[in-house]
Amino acid sequence: MHTDNQIVAQTLKWVRTFIVAQDICPFAQRELERESIRVEVVRSKKTEVALEELMVEVQWLDEHPETETTLLVFPTLFKSFEHYLDFVELAESILIDQGYEGIYQLATFHPDYCFEDTEPDEASNYTNRSPYAMVHLLREESVEKAIEFYGDTDAIPERNIAKLNAMGSAVAEAQLQRCYEPDVSAGSNR
């Protein structure tokens, strides 16, 4: 079992080496450079506790406007993608019930992510495949500003699907697996 620090490092490596390097999300690099991405590891084994932790994180973001976004990582929960989707549905309902509709939104990532109407081995699924099950809490106001700046964001998913289909599942999976490898020290002379 990886430590929380290792999970944070692996998650950030995935963001850097896949999400940013492959330009899956054109907005991620700016937040990495600003160090405004928070990664929190939740080791709960119960969905109810994970939902409570989600709301704790929402409150934390309310109190820390300098942090743009949070990746809430669940290394011990949601091994099943279907179970994860059930959690996401509950999480979105709780955000609405607690008055956070229009303030925060969730982006979803899972190691076995599979879009509706796709086969599990299709490369396009890698746009949302991650080292661990996680939800990405986004400030809706920031999303709106990014869309205003970027322009036609509707083209991003189609572009990503084409890019990943050209890359192929094997290459995408290899890139995902590299996130688990320790980084070699920048000062190494090897």
Rank of each mutant, 00 (worst) to 15 (best):
I37T: 03
I37E: 04
V39I: 02
E40F: 09
V41I: 14
R43A: 05
R43L: 03
S44D: 10
K45T: 15
K46G: 08
K46E: 15
K46C: 09
K46S: 12
T47P: 00
T47R: 06
E48A: 11
E48M: 05
A50T: 01
E52W: 09
E52Q: 14
E52R: 13
L54P: 04
L54R: 01
M55P: 00
M55Q: 08
V56C: 06
V56A: 08
V56P: 00
E57H: 14
E57F: 10
V58K: 10
Q59V: 14
Q59A: 15
W60C: 12
L61A: 10
D62G: 02
E63D: 10
E63A: 13
H64E: 06
E66N: 00
T67M: 02
T67P: 01
T67G: 01
E68L: 13
E68W: 07
E68A: 15
L72T: 00
L72F: 05
V73T: 02
F74M: 04
P75F: 04
P75Q: 03
T76V: 08
T76E: 12
F78M: 03
K79R: 13
K79V: 13
F81G: 03
E82T: 03
E82D: 13
H83V: 06
Y84H: 01
D86F: 14
V88D: 04
E89P: 12
E89N: 15
L90N: 09
L90G: 04
A91H: 07
I94M: 11
I94F: 09
I94S: 06
I94C: 06
L95K: 03
L95P: 02
I96R: 11
I96A: 11
D97T: 10
D97C: 06
Q98T: 13
Q98M: 14
G99E: 12
G99N: 09
G99M: 10
G99F: 11
Y100C: 09
Y100E: 07
G102C: 05
G102E: 00
G102Q: 03
G102R: 03
